[in-house]
Design a protein around this nucleic acid. Structure first.
Lengths: 245, 245
DNA sequence: CGCTATCTTGATATGAATCAATAGCTGTGG
DNA sequence: CCACAGCTATTGATTCATATCAAGATAGCG
């Protein structure tokens, strides 16, 4: 079971003990498949579970009344979904599969158990889910205070950084299975405007986009215009409690 | 020491045991005063502490290269600051006092101790800091997908909701010690435009603003235009581990 | 009693939305 | 294997929200 991408991911941050490993596997029972487009849960649902993504992409989205949509965050292999909403019964956003997915669900209660028996894992989950806050904050800065091209650049870089953090590689070609509407809803722009911006960025040789593949041609300039900071490579474990037998 | 607003706040969510209470007080040693305008820490600083706000207002802000500023979140009495950044050594945002403040600092390491000895407190801290994610997500939706007036309405309502959650009252008059520039930087608009919007909102009898006092005159309509959802009143503790002696 | 930060207001410029129409793909069924 | 249906992307014309620039007007503060 140690081929779980979630365990692999955790291990990248912190060498897990056998006991911890076992505790994590216990959360990953019974993976289920969901076809692209599935709604894993819906804004407002009474949610009592967390999800671990084994395979595929999802995003969290929320729908303001005006029929619009804001995509808050993307989730992929090795991600834990739902921590952000743990304080509330009702989901603050929907989770929608952007590709076919394999996902494990486990009850919140199991997280409580983990807090008792594996404080170090608790600290790790705590940290990982705080990365989500930081990611949101970065998106907020991008959307609140920069113009379209920079927002897109920021989004592409941040997705690439997260995928690289999981995979360990650093490929300039990134599979981003999103339509122009999706991209627009993620950065607060219209699909039409996204289209124009992508054309511009292509002309300026910043990126290339071909179906669901985006190639980052000029990362230095992308970073420059979006002032992107990669925060996903490592986490600070210095304050963690010691491992327990 | 149980008159600490932080303990009061925690107790509102969960009846703390004597032991837990004591553990919390241990984090609240040695309150310090900071005058309005102080920078509690700066974006990029190597931060190894967390802050508990006893008194006053602060905000987290971040500065994109273009000289602009994005205010991410406001912090007041009973708030725990810094959890979001716990995964990283370097602060992702600055913390600036908006009024005179009284603040306790404690080291991250102490949080690790708490995770070992008080799993239920760990769960509570976890939940509380996840509210921050949700708050950011809400702001993101507002900024990404609604127009100026709705953004401001959303901000006012969310500040009011948070303050009410702490105070227990539900006063339509809210002290918001922020300039128009601050407001603009929080919702991604210009100070000038904020000014015009506030004038409009005043004409429409939605709010009244007088120095640092904002009065919500017509909350139903404010809620309607901003589609605000109050999530701060309670948290789901059903999954928490049992209290420990 | 000035000084400086904040707020107000107007004129103009611009990024992005909206509306609208067309073109390309992709998959599906006959 | 073709034709059609239905997404997705492209492009142009126009409108609108918000930014920018610029000058005063207020008002708290030392």
């Amino acid at each position: 079971m140690s081929d779980s991408c979630f365990v692999v991911r955790l291990n990248r941050y912190l060498a897990l003990t056998a006991g911890e490993m076992k505790a994590v596997s216990a959360l990953e029972r019974d993976p289920k498949e969901y076809p692209s487009g599935s709604v894993l849960w819906q804004e407002g649902d009474d949610v009592s579970e967390l999800l671990i993504v084994h395979h595929g992409w999802a995003h969290s989205e929320t729908r303001p009344p005006n029929g619009k949509r804001q995509i808050l965050r993307f989730h992929f292999s090795g991600d834990l979904i739902g921590a952000a909403g743990i304080a509330f019964r009702d989901a603050a956003s929907s989770i929608v599969a952007a590709t076919d997915m394999v996902v494990c669900r486990f009850p919140r209660k199991a997280l409580g158990e983990t807090f008792i028996h594996h404080p170090r894992l608790a600290a790790l989950f705590f940290s990982m889910s705080q990365m989500e806050s930081i990611d949101l904050a970065d998106r907020l800065r991008a959307i609140g205070r920069s113009e379209g091209k920079a927002r897109l650049a920021n989004l592409f870089l941040s997705i690439a950084a997260r995928m690289r953090a999981v995979s360990g590689e650093s490929n300039p070609v990134v599979r981003i299975p999103l339509t122009q509407s999706d991209l627009g809803d993620a950065v607060g722009l219209t699909q039409v405007h996204v289209n124009r911006l992508i054309r511009q960025m292509t002309e300026e040789k910043l990126i290339t986009r071909n179906r669901s593949t985006v190639t980052l041609l000029d990362e230095p300039r992308l970073i420059e215009i979006s002032r992107f900071v990669d925060r996903f490579s490592a986490i600070d474990t210095s304050w963690f409690p010691a491992a327990r037998a």
